[in-house]
Every structure is written in structure tokens, then in C-alpha cells.
Design a protein around this nucleic acid. Structure first.
Length: 614
DNA sequence: TTCCGTTGCGCG
DNA sequence: AAAGCGCGCAACGGAA
């Protein structure tokens, strides 16, 4: 990489003069522009326009005001190339600035490292830059899980004390070089088009995660609190049990007869049950449901309410809900399959009973969209099994398959779930045999994935996300040659567990591919929807730059959970949003799987409260 | 005191 | 003998 030339312009302006700088002037005539940008000290930034392949760049420009520079340059056709959306975007959002597209170097690096079997190495710009130069790579901290290690971290921000990047210009130079290298590595994939789509979708996911965390899910704390009071009694002092739980705990002790027992302690409950003549392997709910003892029903009731209190009680409300919004922190790619995770708040485990606290603002509605039977449909598209795909071309896949299982829809469902999850208990074995006979390609697809896992190989999703390789411990345990004994059984269990993981990975991760592409397409359509006068001028193309809060009337993605998405919008926009969801789903099917008879229907419900959906 | 593995259950 | 998958979070209880 040659020396960077610098053209300092609009150094002390907001967007007015910025429009005259070389980068934005040229951008008017170029369709798809990439602009590399890094944060500098005191809210400044350094940027440079890139060629599409990233191999060359224009002058380096410094701006005093990062958000203003973004506004000046983003006319809807810019793809921002930056170190990590998670580190950069929240500040832009707080400044009222949203961007259309980006290339997230850290998320992309994590995908590439996964493909290259180097998941343990840091995916940050600093890590990628070190590898590119052949320098020592900053070590991943011991005990960190690979997923955590590959998360974009603080090191993506400009830090003057960072020895890797002594100044923003060095960081920009590294960014440009790493981006060019990533473009090369993407093109070198077995399926470069698919992998490029994965990178674009993952980057869009980063933007969406930032925006959803910023906007928040509408959440009525008063409704939530009333619900808790109704179920648990008045809010207790910190550390105390609510009245209803205290009462249940006392009745459980009475029913068991012996010394006081803490129903929160499985060990104590197990001992007390044994003393009362009840022998159970655990205190799990499904076990207790089969126990004929007065304490069992009380314990079940206690466990359900205690969980609500502990996980989503008043303390949760205090910590996570403010200003009528629940604002969790989403972690894109936080799950190896490409599903999202969250940090804090448990946004992906909201109990169904609390959905009634999710209520649209006045004059607004929630459009709740759910991809129906997503994973079996994904398997149908992956396997290219004609008979199976034909069934997946209908509204109810299981019903369409029922004929092969004596007309029993439930059996068809069990067979499918067993094929995707590796289950073989009960009647599943029999049903799997039917599936293998009637839909051989669909069976072979998951069987091949399972075999790859058992042989220690990795598998990939449709768009090319790679599963982690087996651990050294797994290899040690399973490579022992025919030594009879206890270890043989353990090795066999590990082998089959790995097989179930890879078997499920190809389906779950490909479903995540589809969902991510859907999300990106929906976001693009919502932006257009929210800007009905977009043609009137650049200002109207950026309604997201309007003040937040009550003044913000745009249709917003507010929730995403694997195969379900919620949009919060004005009542009048609901129909258009529903249509946008349908279009985005169809587009995702085409982009991810190409021509296929498989349909990916999405059910939508326009509701005031999340609890009214489904 | 803090740390960590286990148990159990919420979601898909 | 079989065991379907993927997560996050809270509480417990023993270890350090």
C-alpha cells in the first residue's frame, strides 16, 4: 500500500462545505461507491473513497464531525467500509444519522476466519492487519469462547494508546489494506457470489442490530408491572419472595412434611421428595408432572412463577426498560450458526406471558411476521429433492407430507424434526425409514452432514458460513483406535453428538442465512416506505435524520428472533409493511437458493399488542 | 469473598 | 441402550 495523500477539507464544518470535498463530489456520478472510514479523536473521522475491488483509493480526507461527514456523503448508494459497526454505529445513531449499507470488517473477518478454520484468532481490524503483515497476532484471551473472541470489540475504536494504530491515518491505511484483502478472499471462495451475499447480509445485520438496540422494542412497564402483581402479589423488598411465592414455598414444606426445604434448590427438593417416598431422577418439570404427590403440583406452580420473578420480574423491568422501550444489545453472529445472540436482557427469551406488555405507540401498530416451518423448507431447498420440494411449495409442508405417513400430519412433523435434529427415539426411527424411502435426497443431505461431523470434518451453510471444527479434546477422545472399555462408549457418544451438531448446523445456519437476507431486504424496503417523497430531494431520502422519539414516524424494525420479525409503524403504513415483508421473503428465497419450487411463506399479523399475534 | 460447574427453564 | 439442535440467564453450592 503506497503512501496516502491527504486533502483536508471541510475541517471545521458540518455538512454544508463537506459537499464540496472531492469524495462527495465524485460520488454523484458513480453508482456504487465504497468509502473507508475510521474514527479519529474528539469525534473526528478520516475517510477515503475506494474502488469497488478495494485495490485503490482516492485522497484521504479528515472531517471534524463524523456524523456530519457521513450525512454529507451518504446519498443512498454508498457502502461504508469500517472496522466494526458495533463500535461505530451507536454514536452515529445517537447523532441521528443512519446509513444505507456497510462492509463490517470485523464481522466479515469472523466469517472468513471461520471458513479458514482459524476461529480462535481475533477478528478485529487489528488482528486482521497483524495477520496481513505477518506480524504477531494479538492473542485471544484464555478462556474466551471463539464467538466472543470474534466479536468486534473496543479495539475497533480509535485509541491513541493502541500500539497497533498510533494514529487514525495508520488505522485507515490498515482498514483499506484489510478490506482489499477481504475482497480477494471472498472472491476466492468456492461460491464467491453466495459468500459475498453472506458478507453483505451480515454487515446489514450489524446495522439492523445497532438500530434495533437504539430504537428499542415498545414496552409498557405499567402493563408488565400489573401483570407481575397479579401473578406474584405486591412487589417485595429486594431479595424477598413475593407473597404468592412465599405462600407456595410454605405449602410445599407442609406437603413434604420434613424439615424446611428451599424450593429453589433442586438438591434440597430431591432429598425432601426422597424422604417423602418419591424417587425421581431430577426435579425437572416434565418429571414432576408424572409424580403423584401433593407437593408436585405445588412445585410446578412455584417453579413457573419463580422463574418469571427471577428472569423477568421487577428487577429486570428496572434494568432494561426505560422511556417505554426495551433496549437489548443484539450480538450479530453471536451463535455459530449465524443466529443472533443478545448481551443482557434476554431479549430472545421473552416469556410468552409478557408479550402483552409489548404494545404499539398511539396511532401505531406492530406488524408481527413469522416464517412458517422455516427449517424444513430450508432443508427442502438445500436437498433439491423434487418430491420434497414440491411439498414445500405449498402452504402447510407437514400436511403436504402427511400422505407419505399414512395421512398423519403429526407423524410427518416428527419425522422431519428427527431428521433435522438427529433424534431416533420412540417411533422416530420408524418414521425416519419412511422419510428415507420416500424422500431419499432430503434424507441423504442431512445424513451426509452428520457423517461429515462424525468424521471430524466441518460443514457449511448455503451461503458459506462454516461450523467450528471439533475441539482437540474431541479428536483425542474419538481417535483412540479400537480400545475396548468405558472410553469406547464415551467416544461413541461424542461422535454421535458431533454428528447431530453438523446435521442440524446445515439446516439451522442456512435458515439463518435466509432470515438475514430477508431482514436486509425488509430494511431497505422500510426505508423507502418511510420516505414517500424520496424523489423530491436528498433531505426527504433521509427521514431517519428527523428527531428521535415522538417526531420519529418511520417504520422501524424493532424485534428479530431467528424466524420472526416485528415492525413498529404508523397504522396507515401497516398494509405496505405487510407487502414489504412478503416481497423481502420471496427475494430472500431467490437470492439464497436460486430457482426452487420451495416457497417461504411468512404469516403477518397487524396488532396493537404482540400477545395478539398468533 | 469470588469463581465456576451444574441444574433448570425461557425462547427459536 | 439411547441420547434429536442452538442459545442466555438465574440460582445453588462447592472450590479457591
Amino acid at each position: 500500500m503506497g503512501a496516502l495523500s491527504t486533502a483536508v477539507c471541510c475541517a471545521s464544518t458540518r455538512c454544508g462545505e463537506a459537499r464540496r470535498c472531492p469524495v462527495s463530489a465524485r460520488q454523484v456520478t458513480i453508482r456504487s461507491v465504497r468509502v473507508a472510514v475510521v474514527a479519529g479523536p474528539d469525534g473526528s473521522c478520516w475517510l477515503s473513497e475506494l474502488a469497488e475491488d478495494g485495490t485503490s483509493h482516492g485522497p484521504v480526507v479528515r472531517h471534524d464531525d463524523f456524523p456530519a461527514a457521513v450525512t454529507a456523503h451518504d446519498h443512498g448508494d454508498v457502502r461504508w467500509v469500517w472496522p466494526a459497526t458495533a463500535a461505530i454505529y451507536p454514536a452515529l445513531l445517537r447523532a441521528g444519522v443512519r446509513v444505507g449499507r456497510c462492509h463490517d470488517v470485523a464481522l466479515t473477518e469472523a466469517l472468513l476466519l471461520g471458513r479458514e478454520g482459524r476461529l480462535a484468532e481475533p477478528a478485529s481490524l487489528a488482528g486482521a492487519w497483524s495477520r496481513l503483515r505477518g506480524a504477531a497476532v494479538p492473542a485471544v484471551q484464555a478462556g474466551q469462547r471463539p464467538a466472543a473472541a470474534s466479536r468486534p470489540g473496543q479495539d475497533a475504536l480509535f485509541d491513541p494508546a493502541d500500539p497497533v494504530f498510533p494514529d487514525p491515518r495508520a488505522a485507515l491505511e490498515a482498514l483499506i489494506a484489510v478490506h482489499a484483502d477481504q475482497v480477494r478472499r471472498i472472491a476466492a471462495d468456492e461460491h464467491p457470489g453466495r459468500f459475498a451475499l453472506l458478507v453483505a447480509a451480515e454487515s446489514a445485520g450489524g446495522l439492523i442490530a445497532g438500530e434495533m438496540g437504539h430504537d428499542g422494542l415498545p414496552w409498557r412497564a405499567d402493563v408488565h408491572s400489573d401483570l407481575l402483581t397479579g401473578l406474584l402479589g405486591q412487589r417485595p423488598m429486594a431479595g424477598m419472595r413475593p407473597a404468592r411465592l412465599a405462600d407456595l414455598a410454605a405449602r410445599i414444606c407442609d406437603a413434604l412434611g420434613g424439615p424446611p426445604v428451599n424450593p429453589d434448590s433442586p438438591a434440597q427438593v430431591l432429598r425432601a421428595l426422597a424422604a417423602a417416598g418419591v424417587r425421581v431422577p431430577s426435579t425437572r418439570s416434565h418429571v414432576l408432572r408424572g409424580v403423584d404427590h401433593p407437593a408436585a403440583a405445588l412445585l410446578l406452580e412455584y417453579k413457573e412463577l419463580a422463574r418469571l420473578h427471577a428472569a423477568h420480574g421487577w428487577a429486570w423491568l428496572d434494568e432494561w426498560v426505560s422511556g417505554g422501550r426495551f433496549r437489548p444489545e443484539y450480538v450479530v453472529g453471536g451463535v455459530v450458526s449465524g443466529r443472533w445472540a443478545t448481551r443482557g436482557g434476554g431479549a430472545l427469551q421473552i416469556p410468552r406471558v409478557l408479550r402483552r406488555a409489548v404494545i404499539a405507540d398511539p396511532g401505531h401498530v406492530l406488524v408481527v411476521a413469522d416464517a412458517a416451518q422455516l427449517e424444513p423448507r430450508v432443508l427442502a431447498a438445500l436437498a433439491d429433492d423434487r418430491a420434497f420440494a414440491a411439498a414445500a411449495g405449498t402452504g402447510d409442508l407437514y400436511e403436504a407430507l402427511a400422505g407419505a405417513f399414512g395421512g398423519d400430519r403429526a407423524k410427518a412433523k416428527v419425522a422431519l424434526l428427527s431428521a433435522m435434529y438427529g433424534g431416533a427415539g420412540g417411533e422416530a426411527g420408524q418414521l425416519l425409514a419412511v422419510l428415507r424411502h420416500r424422500f431419499p435426497l432430503a434424507s441423504k443431505y442431512v445424513e451426509a452432514a452428520a457423517r461429515a461431523g462424525e468424521e471430524g470434518r466441518v460443514v457449511r451453510s448455503r451461503l458459506g458460513r462454516t461450523c467450528p471444527p471439533p475441539s482437540a479434546a474431541w479428536r483425542g477422545l474419538t481417535s483412540v483406535p479400537d480400545e475396548p472399555g468405558a472410553d469406547e462408549a464415551r467416544a461413541g457418544r461424542s461422535l454421535r453428538a458431533r454428528g447431530r451438531f453438523t446435521r442440524n448446523f446445515v439446516v439451522q445456519a442456512s435458515a439463518a442465512d435466509w432470515a438475514l437476507v430477508l431482514l436486509a431486504g425488509l430494511r431497505r424496503r422500510l426505508a423507502a416506505l418511510s420516505a414517500p417523497n424520496a424523489a423530491a430531494g436528498a433531505a426527504a431520502a433521509h427521514p431517519e435524520n428527523q428527531p428521535e422519539g415522538d417526531g420519529d414516524t418511520a417504520a422501524r424494525l424493532v424485534f428479530f428472533q431467528h424466524d420472526e420479525v416485528i415492525v413498529h409503524c404508523q397504522q396507515a403504513l401497516a398494509g405496505a409493511v405487510e407487502a414489504a415483508v412478503g416481497e423481502a421473503a420471496a427475494e430472500a428465497g431467490r437470492l439464497v437458493f436460486g430457482p426452487t419450487p420451495v416457497r417461504f411463506p411468512v404469516t403477518t399479523a397487524v396488532v396493537a399488542s404482540y400477545s395478539d399475534a398468533k
